[in-house]
Amino acid sequence: MNSTANNATAEAAMKKPSRKIGLPGFSWSWLSIPSLLIAWMLVATQFPSYILPQVWEVAEEGYEWIANGELWPHIQASFLEVLGGFGASIIVAIICGFLAGFNKGFREYIVPLNGLFMAIPPIAWAPLMLIIFGIGYTTIVVVIFISAVNPMILTIMEGVLQIQGSEVRAARVLGARRWQLFVYVYLPASLPFITAALRIGFSQAWRALVAAEMIGATHGLGWMVSMGGEIGNSRQVLLGITLIGGVSWLFERMFFRPIEKRYETWRIN
Protein backbone atom coordinates (compact mmCIF):
# COMPACT_ATOMS: atom_id res chain seq x y z
CA MET A 1 0.00 0.00 0.00
CA ASN A 2 2.99 2.34 0.41
CA SER A 3 3.30 2.61 -3.32
CA THR A 4 -0.18 3.99 -3.85
CA ALA A 5 0.59 7.58 -2.92
CA ASN A 6 3.46 7.55 -5.39
CA ASN A 7 1.26 6.14 -8.10
CA ALA A 8 -1.28 8.84 -7.56
CA THR A 9 1.41 11.52 -7.67
CA ALA A 10 2.75 10.12 -10.91
CA GLU A 11 -0.72 10.14 -12.42
CA ALA A 12 -1.21 13.72 -11.36
CA ALA A 13 2.14 14.72 -12.80
CA MET A 14 1.05 13.33 -16.16
CA LYS A 15 -1.98 15.61 -16.17
CA LYS A 16 -1.31 19.01 -17.63
CA PRO A 17 -1.72 21.93 -15.25
CA SER A 18 -5.20 23.29 -15.78
CA ARG A 19 -4.28 26.95 -15.55
CA LYS A 20 -1.29 28.79 -16.93
CA ILE A 21 -0.01 31.95 -15.36
CA GLY A 22 1.37 34.81 -17.39
CA LEU A 23 0.43 37.52 -19.86
CA PRO A 24 -2.46 36.74 -22.16
CA GLY A 25 -1.06 35.91 -25.57
CA PHE A 26 -2.12 37.12 -28.99
CA SER A 27 -5.49 35.86 -30.15
CA TRP A 28 -6.75 35.81 -33.73
CA SER A 29 -10.14 36.84 -32.39
CA TRP A 30 -8.78 40.39 -32.07
CA LEU A 31 -8.78 40.59 -35.85
CA SER A 32 -12.34 39.45 -36.52
CA ILE A 33 -14.25 42.70 -35.98
CA PRO A 34 -11.60 45.05 -37.47
CA SER A 35 -11.33 42.90 -40.61
CA LEU A 36 -15.11 42.97 -41.03
CA LEU A 37 -15.10 46.79 -40.75
CA ILE A 38 -12.27 47.07 -43.29
CA ALA A 39 -14.13 44.80 -45.71
CA TRP A 40 -17.26 46.94 -45.27
CA MET A 41 -15.30 50.13 -45.97
CA LEU A 42 -13.68 48.65 -49.06
CA VAL A 43 -16.96 47.40 -50.49
CA ALA A 44 -18.65 50.70 -49.65
CA THR A 45 -16.20 52.62 -51.86
CA GLN A 46 -17.76 50.84 -54.85
CA PHE A 47 -21.32 52.00 -54.11
CA PRO A 48 -23.03 55.35 -53.79
CA SER A 49 -23.62 56.36 -50.19
CA TYR A 50 -27.45 56.06 -50.39
CA ILE A 51 -27.08 52.34 -51.23
CA LEU A 52 -24.17 51.28 -49.02
CA PRO A 53 -22.99 54.02 -46.66
CA GLN A 54 -19.54 54.10 -45.10
CA VAL A 55 -18.87 53.02 -41.53
CA TRP A 56 -18.44 56.60 -40.35
CA GLU A 57 -21.65 57.68 -42.04
CA VAL A 58 -23.54 55.08 -40.04
CA ALA A 59 -21.73 56.25 -36.90
CA GLU A 60 -22.82 59.78 -37.73
CA GLU A 61 -26.41 58.56 -38.12
CA GLY A 62 -26.12 56.92 -34.71
CA TYR A 63 -24.87 60.16 -33.21
CA GLU A 64 -27.86 62.01 -34.62
CA TRP A 65 -30.30 59.47 -33.16
CA ILE A 66 -28.64 59.83 -29.80
CA ALA A 67 -28.46 63.61 -30.00
CA ASN A 68 -32.14 64.09 -30.77
CA GLY A 69 -33.06 61.61 -28.06
CA GLU A 70 -34.81 59.14 -30.39
CA LEU A 71 -32.52 56.17 -29.97
CA TRP A 72 -33.01 55.46 -26.31
CA PRO A 73 -36.82 54.88 -26.45
CA HIS A 74 -36.31 52.25 -29.15
CA ILE A 75 -33.66 50.36 -27.21
CA GLN A 76 -35.79 50.65 -24.10
CA ALA A 77 -38.85 49.29 -25.92
CA SER A 78 -36.94 46.29 -27.24
CA PHE A 79 -35.40 45.70 -23.85
CA LEU A 80 -38.75 45.72 -22.05
CA GLU A 81 -40.26 43.33 -24.57
CA VAL A 82 -37.39 40.88 -24.12
CA LEU A 83 -37.65 41.26 -20.38
CA GLY A 84 -41.34 40.33 -20.48
CA GLY A 85 -41.18 37.49 -23.00
CA PHE A 86 -37.87 36.00 -21.92
CA GLY A 87 -38.64 36.46 -18.23
CA ALA A 88 -41.93 34.58 -18.57
CA SER A 89 -40.29 31.82 -20.55
CA ILE A 90 -37.57 31.38 -17.90
CA ILE A 91 -40.18 30.75 -15.22
CA VAL A 92 -42.31 28.44 -17.36
CA ALA A 93 -39.28 26.56 -18.73
CA ILE A 94 -37.85 25.89 -15.26
CA ILE A 95 -41.19 24.56 -14.02
CA CYS A 96 -42.01 22.50 -17.13
CA GLY A 97 -38.41 21.36 -17.64
CA PHE A 98 -38.17 19.96 -14.12
CA LEU A 99 -41.64 18.42 -14.29
CA ALA A 100 -40.78 16.74 -17.59
CA GLY A 101 -37.52 15.48 -16.08
CA PHE A 102 -39.29 14.01 -13.05
CA ASN A 103 -42.49 12.72 -14.60
CA LYS A 104 -42.42 10.28 -17.51
CA GLY A 105 -46.05 10.89 -18.47
CA PHE A 106 -45.61 14.66 -18.65
CA ARG A 107 -42.39 14.19 -20.59
CA GLU A 108 -44.08 11.98 -23.17
CA TYR A 109 -46.84 14.56 -23.48
CA ILE A 110 -44.71 17.66 -23.84
CA VAL A 111 -41.76 16.57 -25.99
CA PRO A 112 -43.76 16.31 -29.25
CA LEU A 113 -45.25 19.75 -28.57
CA ASN A 114 -41.79 21.25 -28.06
CA GLY A 115 -40.64 19.67 -31.30
CA LEU A 116 -43.61 21.00 -33.21
CA PHE A 117 -43.25 24.55 -31.90
CA MET A 118 -39.51 24.55 -32.55
CA ALA A 119 -40.14 23.60 -36.17
CA ILE A 120 -42.14 26.80 -36.69
CA PRO A 121 -40.02 29.95 -37.14
CA PRO A 122 -41.06 32.72 -34.68
CA ILE A 123 -41.91 35.15 -37.46
CA ALA A 124 -44.73 32.85 -38.60
CA TRP A 125 -46.61 33.56 -35.36
CA ALA A 126 -46.45 37.33 -35.71
CA PRO A 127 -49.41 37.83 -38.08
CA LEU A 128 -51.71 35.70 -35.92
CA MET A 129 -50.70 37.51 -32.73
CA LEU A 130 -51.22 40.82 -34.53
CA ILE A 131 -54.79 39.79 -35.32
CA ILE A 132 -55.40 38.69 -31.73
CA PHE A 133 -53.55 41.35 -29.74
CA GLY A 134 -53.08 44.18 -32.26
CA ILE A 135 -49.88 46.14 -32.76
CA GLY A 136 -47.87 46.58 -29.59
CA TYR A 137 -46.15 45.15 -26.56
CA THR A 138 -48.31 42.05 -26.00
CA THR A 139 -47.94 40.70 -29.53
CA ILE A 140 -44.19 40.89 -29.38
CA VAL A 141 -43.93 39.47 -25.88
CA VAL A 142 -46.05 36.47 -26.89
CA VAL A 143 -43.95 35.79 -30.01
CA ILE A 144 -40.79 35.98 -27.90
CA PHE A 145 -42.26 33.65 -25.32
CA ILE A 146 -43.29 31.00 -27.87
CA SER A 147 -39.84 30.99 -29.47
CA ALA A 148 -37.76 30.97 -26.32
CA VAL A 149 -39.67 28.64 -24.04
CA ASN A 150 -39.52 25.45 -26.11
CA PRO A 151 -35.78 24.94 -26.53
CA MET A 152 -35.35 25.98 -22.88
CA ILE A 153 -37.76 23.32 -21.66
CA LEU A 154 -35.94 20.66 -23.65
CA THR A 155 -32.51 21.74 -22.41
CA ILE A 156 -33.60 21.74 -18.77
CA MET A 157 -35.43 18.42 -19.13
CA GLU A 158 -32.38 16.75 -20.65
CA GLY A 159 -30.21 18.17 -17.89
CA VAL A 160 -32.52 16.80 -15.20
CA LEU A 161 -32.59 13.38 -16.85
CA GLN A 162 -28.83 13.35 -17.08
CA ILE A 163 -28.21 14.18 -13.43
CA GLN A 164 -30.81 11.62 -12.40
CA GLY A 165 -28.74 8.97 -14.13
CA SER A 166 -25.47 10.02 -12.53
CA GLU A 167 -25.27 12.46 -9.62
CA VAL A 168 -28.70 11.71 -8.16
CA ARG A 169 -28.11 7.96 -8.26
CA ALA A 170 -24.77 8.43 -6.58
CA ALA A 171 -26.32 10.64 -3.89
CA ARG A 172 -29.09 8.14 -3.21
CA VAL A 173 -26.71 5.26 -2.57
CA LEU A 174 -24.84 7.61 -0.25
CA GLY A 175 -28.05 7.93 1.74
CA ALA A 176 -29.49 11.25 0.51
CA ARG A 177 -33.25 11.52 0.81
CA ARG A 178 -35.89 13.90 -0.58
CA TRP A 179 -35.01 17.37 0.67
CA GLN A 180 -31.31 16.49 0.90
CA LEU A 181 -31.39 15.46 -2.75
CA PHE A 182 -32.97 18.76 -3.62
CA VAL A 183 -30.58 20.96 -1.63
CA TYR A 184 -27.32 19.09 -2.11
CA VAL A 185 -27.77 17.65 -5.60
CA TYR A 186 -30.55 19.03 -7.78
CA LEU A 187 -29.76 22.63 -6.91
CA PRO A 188 -26.02 22.69 -7.58
CA ALA A 189 -26.15 20.12 -10.38
CA SER A 190 -28.79 22.03 -12.32
CA LEU A 191 -26.95 25.36 -12.46
CA PRO A 192 -24.87 24.54 -15.57
CA PHE A 193 -27.78 23.40 -17.69
CA ILE A 194 -30.04 26.19 -16.48
CA THR A 195 -27.33 28.59 -17.62
CA ALA A 196 -27.13 26.80 -20.96
CA ALA A 197 -30.91 27.06 -21.28
CA LEU A 198 -30.81 30.80 -20.52
CA ARG A 199 -28.25 31.33 -23.19
CA ILE A 200 -30.16 29.38 -25.82
CA GLY A 201 -33.40 31.05 -24.77
CA PHE A 202 -31.91 34.52 -24.95
CA SER A 203 -30.61 34.08 -28.46
CA GLN A 204 -34.04 32.77 -29.53
CA ALA A 205 -35.80 35.59 -27.74
CA TRP A 206 -33.63 38.21 -29.37
CA ARG A 207 -34.22 36.83 -32.86
CA ALA A 208 -37.94 36.62 -32.25
CA LEU A 209 -37.98 40.18 -30.96
CA VAL A 210 -36.38 41.62 -34.03
CA ALA A 211 -38.52 39.54 -36.38
CA ALA A 212 -41.74 40.48 -34.60
CA GLU A 213 -40.89 44.16 -34.41
CA MET A 214 -40.31 44.23 -38.14
CA ILE A 215 -43.92 43.20 -38.65
CA GLY A 216 -45.99 44.34 -35.74
CA ALA A 217 -44.46 47.33 -33.95
CA THR A 218 -44.13 51.08 -34.01
CA HIS A 219 -40.87 51.11 -32.08
CA GLY A 220 -37.81 49.03 -31.25
CA LEU A 221 -34.60 48.04 -33.02
CA GLY A 222 -36.39 45.69 -35.43
CA TRP A 223 -38.76 48.50 -36.35
CA MET A 224 -35.77 50.80 -36.99
CA VAL A 225 -34.46 48.34 -39.57
CA SER A 226 -37.73 47.69 -41.36
CA MET A 227 -38.77 51.36 -41.35
CA GLY A 228 -35.34 52.31 -42.68
CA GLY A 229 -35.87 49.84 -45.51
CA GLU A 230 -39.30 51.22 -46.33
CA ILE A 231 -38.16 54.82 -46.57
CA GLY A 232 -34.95 53.80 -48.35
CA ASN A 233 -32.59 55.01 -45.62
CA SER A 234 -29.78 52.48 -45.70
CA ARG A 235 -27.89 54.29 -42.91
CA GLN A 236 -30.76 53.68 -40.53
CA VAL A 237 -30.94 50.03 -41.63
CA LEU A 238 -27.26 49.46 -40.95
CA LEU A 239 -27.40 51.35 -37.66
CA GLY A 240 -30.27 49.08 -36.56
CA ILE A 241 -28.39 45.93 -37.58
CA THR A 242 -25.26 47.08 -35.75
CA LEU A 243 -27.22 47.79 -32.58
CA ILE A 244 -29.03 44.45 -32.74
CA GLY A 245 -25.71 42.62 -32.98
CA GLY A 246 -24.04 44.87 -30.41
CA VAL A 247 -26.68 44.55 -27.70
CA SER A 248 -26.77 40.78 -28.05
CA TRP A 249 -22.97 40.64 -27.91
CA LEU A 250 -22.97 42.76 -24.76
CA PHE A 251 -25.42 40.42 -23.04
CA GLU A 252 -23.31 37.43 -24.00
CA ARG A 253 -20.18 39.08 -22.62
CA MET A 254 -21.71 40.54 -19.48
CA PHE A 255 -23.89 37.66 -18.33
CA PHE A 256 -23.54 34.32 -20.04
CA ARG A 257 -19.80 34.06 -20.54
CA PRO A 258 -18.88 34.86 -16.93
CA ILE A 259 -21.49 32.47 -15.54
CA GLU A 260 -20.46 29.67 -17.87
CA LYS A 261 -16.80 30.18 -17.04
CA ARG A 262 -17.64 29.29 -13.46
CA TYR A 263 -18.95 25.88 -14.46
CA GLU A 264 -16.20 25.11 -16.94
CA THR A 265 -14.01 23.76 -14.18
CA TRP A 266 -16.70 21.24 -13.30
CA ARG A 267 -16.94 19.47 -16.58
CA ILE A 268 -15.67 15.90 -16.36
CA ASN A 269 -13.15 15.17 -19.08
Binding site: E167, A170, A171, V173, W266, R267, I268
Partner: peptide
Amino acid sequence: GYVFQASNLFPW
Protein backbone atom coordinates in the same frame (compact mmCIF):
# COMPACT_ATOMS: atom_id res chain seq x y z
CA GLY B 1 -21.93 0.83 -1.17
CA TYR B 2 -21.93 1.34 -4.92
CA VAL B 3 -19.05 2.21 -7.22
CA PHE B 4 -20.30 3.18 -10.66
CA GLN B 5 -18.80 2.47 -14.05
CA ALA B 6 -18.37 6.21 -14.62
CA SER B 7 -17.13 7.62 -11.33
CA ASN B 8 -20.25 9.82 -10.95
CA LEU B 9 -18.42 12.17 -8.61
CA PHE B 10 -20.12 15.46 -7.80
CA PRO B 11 -18.20 17.87 -10.03
CA TRP B 12 -18.89 20.88 -7.81
